[in-house]
Design a protein around this nucleic acid. Structure first.
Length: 946
RNA sequence: GCCCGGGUGGUGGAAUGGUAUACACGAAGGACUUAAAAUCCUUUGAUCUCACGAUCUUGCGGGUUCGAGUCCCGCCCCGGGCACCA
């Protein structure tokens, strides 16, 4: 009997599959196409790590499953080999990046082959090779043609260590994503792609794709769509007006000042006249983004001018402060400290007024308004009365409703103070009260009043009193019948009150730094008072439009994509600067603009703000394509994310030197059907790819505007120490050792078995044994004497169930539950004295996506000529999915007391009969009246007794 | 602070509102063996009990339900994303 020798099997089938071209997809085949894509690796280190193996294993199991379900699956792979990390690695090793990249690709390719994935190695792309990056440059030209690539002098993220500009997306908390150096702001002329033109479509089109919800949300947050209004304020004595953007126009009557960002034109203008302002502008300019983030202490200076609130003609001071971002909206905001945390903080620091214009609204969930009775509107005073002698507060316990509250009473044309005194006298008899204050906020509450049998929308005003003495005038019996007067300790109030608006007010009273930032009902807002925030937003926008000073507006947080890099290892930007013609793109037929071959010393970044190419006269000096005169080449290169933003379009066209895409092939094969990769790319690669796809769609080059129809993420495999793998921590696990020890089949199956695919987790080889046992058992089964006929009905049922479950689980990326099903099946088969050939064949087919090598070997050993990987997924027999006998739990009052084995199609009555005979059940039911019996077919019988 | 995930045995982890802890690892005991490895069998959430069995248990506290890991409300903790975006 032969031993299971994974090494021998793996090398044997790798060769055979290569010869038979099993995994080289015939792109012209008639069968329905399935483009199964994994994020291509970045060969910045010597080897791919275990996380790559994880991602590819999952994607490959899925791809293989699609193939045996009749799809013509295309599963390409390549290398994202341009860019900073590859260059940094090369420089560290003292090797030219072209050399180190080529070396790394050799290692990585060998690894990729060992994984046993059905990659089509004939269609590889390497983004750093000229026959690829000519198309990167071509994409640039296409975007440039549409006005989507432009140059702009602006503050950009500069990494002093990588000595280059970075995109916003590559700066994490003010730190360079790659080298973890603090990023500084530098004013430089840089290239940008106008991704902001697509902000809205990038947001709404997410509805078209099947992506994890969390990823859609992440992208939406990054795009940061925000709907509001933009309107103008006149400035007293200045001809310029200030435009502000706000999402809360409903709070406009609470505006107590206006803030300009230091970058605002008016701020600069005012700075010319005032030394104080000029100094402030200078101060904020020198702060790095990180400093601006860290020191969140608000700073600012008065601008010395006043703006006019168009709604109430009130004069409000203008301030200049760096808590307003110059590049967002209009760079100026209206400040409403009563309803915005930041404005509140600023107002507190600089002693600016705070005016409440939004009252919280409460719908009483206990005493809900009744639709059949009338609703009355009332202005109400709510009295908070303290007895200074005892420190207790006056509360009422209601007799006809479940209320425990402070006393309240209608205003009836009186002030809250007057109404409060009157009402307290009536309800409690207390007559000597000292008015303390009226709280600066009010609340609306809508509820049903059982004692008056009506609904009410009450607008509560809160008045504080101190009790001077306990003298009373007595209380009428009718008042005594409705409520009882109680005095409650200060600490007990929060618990005692059960009326929401009062609980809210008490909470705010004891914690005065709180403000109301939610929606509510407008107060003190002129003609808009009484409206809800939503109603007011619509009406106020109309009001502004009618006056011609404002309108609805949408803003996005997304910024344009800065893609020029002052580094060597990237695709040169195909542009020349001509003294006569200005900026001229290199014509398509002249592509690629080749990266000059330099010595390692010339490759090193310069730190001058220009890339190393600027020091290569042969490269720089060029002829203008337009006029033929002398011109200079652009010396910046493109960020690697440009290379990866379209590689999926190129894969099916690899080998075609005449055009980027063959329209026929592209139409047939794109968009990508399934894309697997890490969630860390959601706001970078995935966003950029969607943008480029949409731009090409708008150019009429391609006929689809979303590149990835389905997306699934693998989680991150951490080091054995539970920390993110990194060379410096020395916890990097390379799959090679594992594969050579236990084989690719065991590696793939185990890593997918470890946990949910999207979860990842620390690498722990302990459990590998379980999977190697599984494979060895299958091997042993294949070496045993096989039956010709199916063994028995029980085995058949389990087999059919397994076919169903494994298939469904793969389809849903639930690999970690598919593998256990295979284990259950194999364990059962091992228990059988003998198994049949048919059963073994079916087993091998359904485990083949996980363990392609052993499956193929066993399949061949069974005498099959064709590959197991093109065997159709077995059909399962629906009638064999359901067990004949099922075990039913019998619960008495919620506790399982017995389990019964009954026929699966047993009726409720039959099950009840059997349950009645159970002695265990009888212990809990005898002598008691059965009130209810609930039967869930095949699952449970629930008996409820008195 | 805001927005997403998540919290289940010693460990990785299962579980359309219906028998929580599948499957695997580890551990303990046993068989085979001169011995070990491999393999196979048994046990393995906790507590009480000689035992039959009982009680408790899915981060904490409430609620809905015949029945809650799962649904609702309020907290705590961990991971990720965004962060002065008006």
């Amino acid at each position: 009997m032969a031993k299971y020798d994974h090494k021998q099997i793996e090398s044997k089938w790798q060769d055979i599959w290569e010869t038979t071209r099993q995994n080289n997809t015939d792109l012209d085949a008639k069968a329905e196409k399935f483009y199964n894509l994994v994020m291509f690796p970045y060969p910045s280190g010597e080897y791919l790590h275990i996380g790559h193996g994880y991602s590819y294993s999952g994607a490959d199991v899925y791809g293989r499953y699609m193939r045996v379900n009749g799809k013509n699956v295309f599963e390409p792979i390549g290398f994202d080999s341009f860019g900073l990390p590859a260059e940094n690695y090369a420089i560290k090793k003292g090797v030219h990046p072209a050399v180190s990249t080529a070396d790394n690709i050799v290692h990585a390719t060998a690894q990729l082959k060992s994984f046993g994935c059905m990659f089509d190695f004939d269609k590889m792309v390497t983004t750093s090779s000229p026959d690829y990056y000519r198309w990167t440059q071509w994409i640039f030209l296409k975007l440039y043609e549409r006005g989507l690539a432009y140059q702009k002098e602006s503050p950009v993220n500069w990494c002093p260590k990588c000595v280059t500009v970075l995109a916003n997306e590559q700066v994490i908390d003010g730190i360079c994503e790659r080298c973890e150096t603090e990023v500084v702001q530098k004013n430089m002329k840089q290239w940008f792609f106008k991704i902001t033109d697509y902000a809205d479509r990038l947001d709404t089109d997410l509805d078209k794709v099947d992506w994890p919800n969390s990823s859609k949300l992440k992208q939406r947050n990054w795009i940061g769509k925000s709907t509001g209004v933009e309107f103008e304020l006149e400035v007293v004595g200045v001809s310029e007006k200030i435009s502000v953007f706000t999402t809360r126009i409903d709070t406009v009557f609470g505006m107590s000042y206006v803030v300009l960002a230091p970058e605002h034109a008016l701020a600069k203008q005012l700075g010319e006249k005032s030394k104080e302002i000029a100094e402030y502008l200078q101060d904020t300019k020198s702060k790095s983004d990180l400093e601006r983030q860290e020191g969140k202490e608000k700073t600012g200076v008065p601008a010395g001018v006043y703006a006019i609130n168009p709604f109430n003609r009130e004069k409000v001071p203008v301030w200049i402060a760096d808590y307003v971002i110059g590049s967002y909206g209009t760079g100026a905001v209206m400040a409403v400290p009563a309803h915005d945390e930041r404005d509140f903080e600023f107002a507190n620091k600089f002693n600016l007024s705070v005016k409440e214009v939004i009252a919280p609204y409460f719908l009483d969930p206990v005493n809900k308004p009744k639709p059949e009775v009338e609703t009355e509107k009332r202005e109400v005073a709510c009295m908070i009365v303290r007895n200074p002698k005892t420190g207790k507060y006056l509360c009422l316990k209601w007799k006809k409703a479940e209320w425990q509250s402070f006393p309240t009473g209608g205003l009836d044309e009186q002030t809250p103070e007057e109404a409060g005194r009157r009402e307290l006298l009536e309800e409690t008899g207390y007559k000597n009260l000292k008015f303390v204050e009226q709280l600066p906020w009010s609340c609306y509450a809508e509820f049903y009043r059982p004692h008056k049998k009506s609904n009410v929308v009450a607008h509560f005003h809160y008045v504080l009193f101190d009790l001077v003495n306990e003298e009373t005038d007595g209380v009428e019996q009718s008042e005594k019948d409705t409520h009882e007067v109680v005095w409650i300790e200060k600490d007990g109030i929060a618990e005692y009150l059960n009326v929401w608006n009062q609980s809210y007010t008490w909470d705010r009273l004891t914690n005065r730094s709180k403000i109301h930032t939610e929606k509510g009902i407008l107060v003190d807002s002129g003609e808009f008072s009484g409206l809800t925030s939503e109603e007011a937003k619509a009406k106020m926008a109309k009001w502004l439009e009618k006056k011609g000073i404002g309108s609805s507006k949408v803003n996005y947080r997304l910024r344009d994509w800065s893609f020029s890099r002052q580094r060597y290892w990237g695709a040169p930007i195909p542009v020349v600067y001509c003294q006569e013609c200005g900026t001229v793109p290199v014509p398509e037929q002249d592509l690629p603009v080749l990266l000059p071959e330099l010595s390692i010393d010339q490759v090193r970044p310069t730190g001058t703000g220009k890339g190393p190419l600027a020091g290569v006269p042969d490269f720089v000096n060029a002829k203008c394509p337009k006029c033929g005169g002398n011109a200079e080449r652009e010396t910046d290169t493109m960020d690697t994310f440009v290379c990866s933003s379209f590689y999926f379009l190129r894969y099916p066209n690899v080998g075609d030197d005449t055009e980027m895409f063959n329209p026929e092939i592209t139409k047939k094969w794109l968009p990508v059907d399934m894309y697997v990769g890490g969630p860390e790319h959601v706001t970078m690669h995935l966003l950029y790819s969607r943008f480029v796809t949409k731009a090409l769609y708008d150019s009429g080059i391609i006929g689809f505007d979303e590149p990835f129809m389905k997306l699934r993420h693998q989680g991150m495999i951490l080091g054995p120490d539970g920390k993110k793998m990194s060379k410096s921590k020395g916890n990097v696990i390379v799959p090679n050792d594992i594969i050579s020890k236990v084989g690719a089949d065991a590696f793939r199956t185990y890593i997918l078995f470890m946990g949910r695919f999207e979860d990842g987790g620390p690498w722990n080889p302990q459990g590998l044994t379980g999977v190697t046992k599984l494979l060895e058992r299958v091997w042993k089964l294949s070496e045993s004497q096989l039956l010709e006929d199916p063994e028995n009905i029980l085995v058949e049922r389990l087999l059919n169930k397994s076919i169903k479950k494994v298939g469904e689980d793969i389809e849903a990326f639930r690999f970690n539950t598919a593998v256990p099903q295979l284990m259950i099946l194999v364990n059962e088969l091992v228990q059988q004295k003998q198994i049949s050939k048919v059963t073994l064949e079916k087993l091998v087919v359904i485990m083949a996506p996980f363990a392609p090598y052993i499956a193929e070997e066993v399949w061949a050993n069974l005498g099959n000529k064709n590959s197991v990987h093109v065997q159709p997924w077995p059909e399962y027999d629906v009638s064999l999915i359901q067990d004949e006998m099922v075990s039913i739990a019998v619960q008495v009052n919620g506790k399982v007391r017995d389990t019964l084995l009954v026929s699966a199609d047993a009726s409720e009555d039959e099950v009840i009969e059997v349950a009645k005979e159970s002695a265990k059940v009888a212990i809990y039911t005898s002598g008691k009246k059965v009130e209810k019996m609930i039967y869930v077919k095949g699952k449970i019988l629930s008996i409820v007794t008195e």
